[in-house]
């Protein structure tokens, strides 16, 4: 729940001196803008735009000569190997600020936004340096990750003539993790598992129906005594109170009775926007809740004729879905 009351006031006071100050570490490009680093970047990212590596094509373009990809901006000032092996810079006010948060429980850190503006494209031979200022620290916020504070930094990039060539704002959330992160799901080989749809909970009254789907059957429960069909399955017939039942295969023909298109929240394992419909089945009085597939969700409409298909929606998991009748 984050710090509250007097503790929170006292903590927020300790943050104030950091707002507006330079972070204090040296950010000077160690090399001129050069073809080798540009080529390395373009190859790694598979960027084939000729203005970065082909002098002739670059000369013919509006740029007139070889330029560096604009999003490389920060690459010219990062310290490289030192980031893996070097000692932390004792002058780094940003790290100092993060430690203040760590000490009171806001141990999580995640970059949430970045924005870069480019005044001009950098050319071979240019040399950049940068100055970063801690611009703002937000109020305490409730976020999906937990309670925390957003820290905005702004970096201004200048060239060899001290002219501003671009800028970057960077937004980081320092937060109190709201719960222990769940162990990451993995498959048998230890590789990260792909998210899947939420599986039904199975128990006596519904397991037989889902087993039918996995065997490619779209079943409807039928009262063995009075013959009434019912869905979703229930253990007793509401018409004659019989507990004896069997099932029949549905014809799979139907018409959309109502539908929604889900945009939010996006749950891993599903594709969005996601169309879900209540379908009037051909069997009188029966409806079925299902995804409408094989068409643009925006094209689903009430009265649309649809037919069922048992489809593998995830590995090892089949569902009854409906698709438009051509």
């Amino acid at each position: 729940m984050g710090l509250q009351g007097k503790e929170r006031e006292a903590f927020e006071k300790t943050l104030e001196p950091y707002v507006g100050i330079e972070i204090g570490i040296k950010e000077i490009g160690r090399d001129e803008i050069n073809q080798a680093m540009i080529r390395h970047w373009c190859e790694a990212l598979d960027n084939e735009l000729p203005i970065y590596t082909d002098a002739e094509a670059a000369a013919d373009s509006m740029h007139g000569e070889i330029v560096a990809p604009p999003t490389m901006l920060q690459a010219w000032i990062l310290p490289g190997m030192e980031m893996a092996t070097g000692e932390p810079d004792p002058n780094d006010k940003q790290k100092e600020l993060h430690r203040l948060f760590d000490d009171v429980g806001y141990t999580g850190v995640v970059a949430t936004n970045t924005e870069q503006e480019y005044n001009r494209y950098l050319k071979l031979g240019d040399r950049v340096k940068a100055v970063t200022v801690i611009e703002t620290i937000s109020e305490q916020k409730a976020t999906g990750l937990g309670i925390g504070y957003f820290i905005n930094t702004k970096t201004t990039f200048t060239d060899q003539n001290d002219e501003v060539v671009g800028s970057m704002t960077f937004r980081v959330l320092k937060f109190e993790p709201s719960q222990q992160p769940a162990a990451a799901p993995t498959d048998d080989s230890g590789a990260p598992a792909k998210p899947t749809r939420i599986r039904p909970a199975l128990a006596h009254d519904n397991q037989w129906w889902w087993e039918g789907v996995q065997a490619d059957k779209f079943l409807i429960q039928r009262c063995e005594d009075c013959g009434v069909l019912r869905h979703p399955p229930r253990p007793m017939c509401g018409e004659c109170q019989s507990i004896r039942w069997d099932s029949v295969e549905a014809t799979g023909q139907g018409e959309v009775y109502s539908y929604v298109v889900i945009h939010y929240p996006e749950v891993p394992g599903y594709e969005y926007p996601l169309a879900v419909a209540v379908v009037d089945l051909e069997e009188p009085g029966l409806r079925f809740v299902t995804n409408v597939v094989d068409c643009d969700p925006e094209d689903v409409h009430i009265g649309m004729k649809v037919e069922a298909e048992v489809r593998e929606m995830d590995p090892d998991f089949k569902m009854v879905v409906f698709k438009p009748i051509a």
């Binding site: 749809r197 939420i198 599986r199 039904p200 909970a201 199975l202 128990a203 009254d205 519904n206 979703p232 009775y257 109502s258 539908y259 929604v260 889900i262 939010y264 929240p265 749950v267 599903y270 996601l274 879900v276 209540v278 809740v289 299902t290 995804n291 009430i302 929606m313 998991f317 569902m319």
Partner: peptide
């Protein structure tokens, strides 16, 4: 078991249930 008829198709929030009635 009731929710299990709806979660696999993605219908799992109050907004999604109410939207279905609203559309009709």
């Amino acid at each position: 078991i009731h929710w299990s008829w709806y979660m696999p198709s993605g219908l799992m929030t109050p907004a999604s249930w109410v939207a279905m009635f609203t559309q009709r």
